[in-house]
Design a protein around this nucleic acid. Sequence first.
DNA 1: AAATTTATTCAACACATTGTCTATTATCTC
DNA 2: GAGATAATAGACAATGTGTTGAATAAATTT
Lengths: 190, 190
Amino acid sequence: MKGQKTDRRVKYTKMVLRESLVKLLKQKPISKITIKEICEEADINRATFYTHYSDQYDLLRQTETGLLSDINEYLAGYSFSDKDGSESIQILEKIFEYIKENADLCSVLLSDTGDISFQQEVMKIVQNQCISEWTKKSVNKELAEYIYSFAVTGSVGVVHKWLKEGMKQSARELAEMVINLTNRGISAFV
Amino acid sequence: MKGQKTDRRVKYTKMVLRESLVKLLKQKPISKITIKEICEEADINRATFYTHYSDQYDLLRQTETGLLSDINEYLAGYSFSDKDGSESIQILEKIFEYIKENADLCSVLLSDTGDISFQQEVMKIVQNQCISEWTKKSVNKELAEYIYSFAVTGSVGVVHKWLKEGMKQSARELAEMVINLTNRGISAFV
DNA sequence: AAATTTATTCAACACATTGTCTATTATCTC
DNA sequence: GAGATAATAGACAATGTGTTGAATAAATTT
């Protein structure tokens, strides 16, 4: 996976910079956070920042893609059975489980102020495989893609709400809700 | 509605600044746009900018809320019948019609890089009334709110895609799709 | 049409952040 | 321990920021 093992100093630098960013993101939006501020909080020289990142947004983006690969790694640790067609729900459950376990970081990156295209990446992990399933069900491709957009962004909305309200439901419950809403909409609940 | 009619000069200033912002937003994200740049493009003195807005983000936000009240005004010009329970679809159709007619501005404000909480405001116009309907249908309030989140953000996703791909479908078709997905999910199409 | 009010402009200002650079120091890897 | 590499300290010009006061231009009011 990795080209070569990274220097411990680099690891440390990147870690504290990420932590510093997350801490600041809890207080204000990325647009109000300066590089100077991040470095002071992390106690890292500003010149060092520039050897790793071009600006705050770059650091944020790299933090996001880091989370994404963490989730993928987490999922790789499980095997999912597709015997009863419940593979999607199992993957979703694991994703929500991961989010719950890493709520500190996730609630920042997946909040309202966070950037939506990243959040959709997270949900796409699951739903990517579904689109081929749906097209099988005699739905034309274009329509399938609209359904896909609706389901993916809709799921993001559900996760937002879940995080904001303290993750009262279990990962399993939320996964079931999302699958039900996607497959049968409101009619699944009345 | 208005306290007093605004000075024509103020009207002009705000207009060109908005136009300038929109023009720049087509080229790069708000985070890379400076106040200096907006003012040069609009040929407005920077000091004048500060008499109306605190920063780029303020200008953007005011542009967004302007669009929002425009839509509301547009909707106020029509009366919707709720005889057959098709009020939602009629309102949605009009909203999509408005977006289509003002695609230049809307495609910028409703794009991926745009801010999601605003986009949800647009969709909330319709769905706000639905939540009370759903709770009537023996769905508990907490669940209804999750459905609401799913439907509202899901709709935003559909509109994104629609705009990005050149608005091939009619406003009516899109409205039907959103309502169907909300009510019956994928099962509405198979 | 003149008087008055108000918005905009202009130029200047102190201030903060930015991005880059060089010499020096600290720490890691082998 | 030796050599390589990363981080630091400090300085730098460049740029954007936010505010000010006086001059100008354009609106509204009478």
